[in-house]
Write a protein that binds this DNA or RNA. Sequence first.
RNA 1: GGCGACGUGGCCAAGUGGUAAGGCGAGGGUCUGCAAAACCCUUAUUCGCCGGUUCGAAUCCGGCCGUCGCCUCCA
Length: 472
Amino acid sequence: MKPVKFFNSLGRRLQEFEPLEPAHVRLYTCGPTVYDRIHIGNLRTFIFEDILRRTLRFFGYRVTQAMNLTDVEDKIIAAALEAEVDIDTFTAPHVESFFEDLAALRVERVEHYPRATEHVAEMIAMIERLLAAGYAYRADDSVFFRIAADHDYGKLSGIDLDQVRRGQRVQSDEYGKQDARDFVLWKGAKEGEPEWPSPWGPGRPGWHIECSAMSRKYLGKTFDIHCGGVDNLFPHHENEIAQSESANCCPLARYWLHSEHLTVDGEKMSKSLGNCYTLGDLLDRGLPARSIRYLLASVHYRQQLDFTFDKLAEAGRALKRIDDMRFRLAHEAEKDGDSASLDLAASDFENAFAEALADDLNTAAALGAVFTFVHAVNGFIDHGLPPGARARVQAALDRADQVLAVLDVGEWAGSPEAGGGLSDAEIDALVEARSDARASRNFAAADRIRDQLSEAGVVVEDTPHGSRWKRA
RNA sequence: GGCGACGUGGCCAAGUGGUAAGGCGAGGGUCUGCAAAACCCUUAUUCGCCGGUUCGAAUCCGGCCGUCGCCUCCA
């Protein structure tokens, strides 16, 4: 098992990764709040986490991952109230579209998707422990976490709450608390809001406690990696640490990985700017899901990524280079090439690829290795493929694609319309007719067929060994 | 005000001390009946600016300029 290094937000440094249990990684990733369709910024984070998960397995670890679904929270309650339905009815379609979006981008299903509404009992139990230990207090019908009681509060974000400029949101909190820094664990019920019984009367859980309770249930008091977007670093993850470590008396997670945000046309996504794209928005424009995954995965996760349609098109052209090589490889006969040097190129690629991933998930460098290999294989195709070359190249690419899930176009639902409705057999027949025409030097007829195929989205390539075709 | 990140060729983007990966674009070439497609080659003596450390710096240190993010809704 190769040593893998990650940049740990807790301590802000690159660290060699070592799981608590040998060969088994327990991973918690903050999931969506299911009040709307998720946007491509969310998707960037989920793709990063997917690549993390796949990378861990690539290096031989077994992964147990939990991703929560926040299905009760202020925005959900407000929207459900507005729609005059209960929150479960309101969130159901958003949960569904969330899974659809992930599937469309080939994000793997994880082991657990716990929902907040199904774990209120665990949250109450944790709040009771915090109250008993003096880390929490009741005020009105609510319960708050007492930050003054937590001596190492702020260790993740480095934020010193005494230095924080007091924003309006702090002042305007509706629930009474002893100290403006404190955050809510349990909110007393309000008229018209969903509520659960508790030792403190009816109410609902605060946002932060959800993750603390659910990660403990599915991964244990201390687990290996906790991920999320940078915006969650403070206050959400800071508060999770405060709650969990105060309640459990042991560290929450050993490694904290945060992915940077996606901007659109250089600006933060926001509804008012109209640049808040969902996956559906992009797919509706006919943009391929595969290009989207490639683009979102192609920049290092700790680097801000600026999304533009130009870059998405570029991503598609880059993928085409890979597809073209595979197409040529599939149509080129193996004969007398240098087997040893092809094998060397393949193992160079495999080593460079693994090394890049092991270096804090450097997907940009890993893709660089892919293209260097593509170049090398193109050279073999031009100068002679040794016996076994196709299988060797295929194996190397397949292994890399276990992590990237983007290299093999065949794994992506192609557009069935491509080819203008022509079947493979019909295209074969047309290409053959064209070859016959060319052989008899009837170029006008040959060009007519070529135009016909072109209009149907089929590209014909003439090679020294005859013509071949592919769908554009 | 506090905390943090970033600034590499036309565009994007790797690279944390040893002499600039990769992709897109552009230019040239090969192949071709002509094309197309594809492939190949070329494309940064230089890494925001100024100093410093070092035999050696895009990489370390200091200063400056610029961009961005977080500071209790937010992936």
